[in-house]
Design a protein around this nucleic acid. Structure first.
Lengths: 219, 219
DNA sequence: ACATTTTTTTAGACTAATCTAAAATTTATT
DNA sequence: AATAAATTTTAGATTAGTCTAAAAAAATGT
């Protein structure tokens, strides 16, 4: 049996692994789980005993195949529930993360499968994140973040790399929704902030911090 | 903050209260929570401190208004999710209880309200149990159990008083679904078992134990 | 009414997940 | 390479929810 808490640790280690090649540090996990490093150490030992992670003390942690499988199931559930909340219940994309954090731990393979069918087997959640399929296969997308795109290269917004309510609300306010066409009009050398057009009459000025968290593909 | 576990205790005390006028005994709670009496005593003291129940040691327990409010919210969620699982995801009525036991603890007023709307504000769950409204008001129904009905009095099946998988599967197998017309053809004096017709060509013989758990209204 | 049985509570212990403070190890800096 | 700084682990404590065994109270049966 894998507890609610253990599932959260695995999910977080998975997410950190997606950003780094190397082992994940105790502190990095502590930050995302909102606990102290000492608590993480205890949990890593426990997960290691259960063969869900490979962990040597002071050397960081990595998911085993079994651990990755569990993490992907949790992520699958999280994202499917988000689709449900937005597409069926009419929530906005900035309102669903917290609720999905709870729903992702409901245990029933049958439920997940039926939910998937009910939603017509969506490939992406409301933030553009890919939804792993039944076997944990995650579509590789090759999206880039807006920060690496050149001036005048037309792109389409496909997702976000950050899910905080405030960030999502900000994007909604300036009309940055999934699917909009974006062109960078000018990039400031010193801080990489940029002026963009996203289809409307007026242009927007955004910081590099924002651009880094917007995922796009070339047209 | 009210924990998952505390919510379960309150729900169970509510259900026991619906069957009895007097205080609920520690043992009765222990049986339904699947814990030992000693654990129940501890929890009752805790709930009492939180003003969710009124409890004097050795004197049994009763919900306060605040406690009843919480219990009704949990029951509302449980039953709404059951409607979702059956009406939207296509589960059978005997498959949903366990899953709803988990879903009922998801915390979000907004979610409950939107779910309610999405399901067209149902008044009854798939077992015929009434769903409390937003303010905790539970429609009084005056259903009787089949065990108290006279021979030849036509009635309609409206619900069940027991939710075990095996019982529900048995009912489904003999065509006892919500809404069917039932007539008692004969009652055996010694054990109150009975022969009934429920609309089909063949009649069924059911025990009093079964009859007691079938809720009906007169036509 | 008194003894017996049943129910309930107390006392003390256990597990999971967390914490703080101190010790150990690794990494960075001069 | 030695020392300082940062990170990670250990040790010991805490909280929620549970348990068993023993004690206390209530209910039951002559």
């Amino acid at each position: 049996m894998i507890s609610f808490t253990e599932e959260n640790y695995l999910k977080i280690i998975y997410k950190l692994s997606a950003e780094t090649e190397s082992e994940i540090s105790t502190n990095a996990v502590a930050e995302l789980t909102q606990t102290k490093a000492a608590s993480v150490t205890d949990m890593l030992r426990k997960l290691s005993e259960k063969q869900l992670v490979s962990y040597q003390k002071y050397q960081g942690v990595r998911l085993t195949e079994k651990g990755e499988e569990v993490a992907l199931k949790v992520i699958r559930k999280h994202r499917l529930w988000e689709v449900f909340l937005v597409n069926k219940l009419g929530f906005n994309w900035d309102e669903v993360h917290e609720i999905a954090e709870e729903l992702e731990h409901i245990n029933s393979e049958e439920l997940v499968q039926r939910l998937d069918d009910f939603l017509d087997c969506p490939q992406f959640d409301p933030h553009g994140d890919p939804i792993p399929d039944k076997d944990g296969k995650m579509p590789e997308l090759g999206y880039k973040n807006l920060s690496g795109i050149a001036v005048n290269q037309p792109v389409v917004m496909m997702g976000v790399a950050q899910h905080s309510t405030s960030f999502l609300q900000y994007l909604a306010k300036i009309g940055m929704n999934l699917g909009v066409n974006i062109t960078i009009l000018e990039i400031n050398d010193f801080d990489k902030s940029m002026t963009i057009n996203n289809g409307g009459n007026s242009n927007y000025f955004i910081s590099n911090e924002v651009a880094k968290n917007i995922l796009v593909k070339k047209k």
